[in-house]
């Protein structure tokens, strides 16, 4: 029998202690609480949110789809600011090519190419992702204007577009279906697939990932390709549903998708978070937006509220807490009194 050493607590046994540890390991806590509070209050003030559930879910899908792809990148501690303009540019591509059977693959391919270019600058050239994707943001929104000749472009096959907005079965429109497919695909990828799981390592401790032989650069490529592809898919959905591509499409998407990811407990520096969290974040935001719309609350007020919730989501991040509490104590009126002796 060999020697052993006991260093930490043993594995919890018993149902409730185990449940507690499992919950303690999740990152979505804040998102869940927020969503529950929102739903509870709405049950009294805006029951319409529930009766019009398909519309509410549609809204969540609209906000959430880009956020899902973005989360893949955020998990690695990178940012992709080009998601909204990828959406706009790919949306225009769908509209300017008359045959949808060519247009849709072309738009999706464009998303992949955008991801590859982003990743090239970040992983190979070594530019910070904030800057590289900011450059891409400008380049693509410029491209969207050029391709569309600066005017909204209607798709040739209007009927296909209008049909795309109709439910497939029950209340499920193609948008909602695609949203859930994307959710399941990315969720499985980052939880079950080795390469996806390694995103957490790339974001959590890049040096450790590198030292362990994880192909960090390849992972960064994968992440940005996911983000680009999903944004382009969103662009396709937007254009088909609207039957028109506008070069300014998705102007509110960038902030909303970051907000959904952050509220869902994703840590912007990477390594911590989850796709489910983003889904919850998008749900909170979507439900809130529907409720505020139905009540006719002015947009600036809506934005202020969403901003405040975002801020709270960020500062309730356990790791920011310590820094903030120290900061606050330091700036409070200094209680250093001089007691004469």
């Amino acid at each position: 029998m060999t020697e052993t050493i006991q260093l930490g607590g043993a594995k919890e046994t018993g149902f409730f202690p185990r449940l507690r540890t499992i919950i303690g390991r999740r990152t979505e806590g804040r998102g869940v609480i927020l969503l529950l509070v929102i739903l509870a209050v709405l049950a009294f003030t805006q029951p319409l949110v529930f009766t019009a559930l398909p519309v509410t879910i549609g809204r969540i899908a609209l906000i959430g789809i880009v956020a899902l792809g973005l989360t893949a990148v955020i998990l690695m501690g990178e940012l992709d600011l080009s998601v909204a303009s990828t959406l706009a540019a790919s949306g225009v591509v769908v509209a300017i090519i008359p045959d949808l059977r060519i247009a849709i693959p072309a738009a999706l391919l464009m998303g992949i190419v955008v991801g590859i270019i982003n990743a090239f600058f970040i992983a190979i050239v070594g530019i910070a992702s904030f800057i590289a994707s900011l450059g891409m943001l400008f380049a693509l929104s410029g491209l969207a204007f050029v391709l569309s000749n600066e005017v909204p472009v209607s798709i040739a096959n209007q009927d296909a577009g209008l049909a795309f907005g109709q439910p497939l079965f029950g209340p499920v429109t193609p948008r909602i279906l695609l949203f859930f497919l994307v959710f399941i695909a990315i969720q499985l990828f980052v939880t079950k697939v080795k390469a996806g799981r390694e995103f957490f390592a790339v974001g959590g401790n890049r040096q450790a990932a590198y030292d362990s032989g994880i192909p960090v650069k390849r992972r960064i490529f994968t992440g940005f390709i996911i983000s680009g592809f999903v944004s382009a898919l969103a662009g396709v959905i937007y254009t088909l549903e609207l039957t028109v591509a506008t070069p300014t499409a998705g102007s509110t998407v960038l902030l909303a998708s970051f907000a959904a990811a952050i509220i869902g407990g994703n840590y912007l520096k990477g390594g911590r978070g989850s796709i489910i969290g983003t889904l919850i974040g998008a749900s909170s935001l979507g439900v809130l937006q529907v409720a505020l719309f139905l009540s006719g609350v002015q947009v600036p007020v809506q934005n202020t509220l969403i901003g405040a919730i975002l801020l709270i989501a960020v500062i309730t991040d356990p790791s920011s807490l310590r820094a903030i509490s120290a900061r606050v104590r330091a700036t409070l009126p200094d209680r250093t009194k001089v007691e004469a002796q």
């Binding site: 120290a326 104590r329 330091a330 409070l332 200094d334 209680r335 250093t336 009194k337 001089v338 007691e339 004469a340 002796q341």
Partner: peptide, 14 residues
Amino acid sequence: GKTKVISSFESAVK
């Protein structure tokens, strides 16, 4: 000869 109360790290450094 002066006694100060330490309430925060900042006050400690000061």
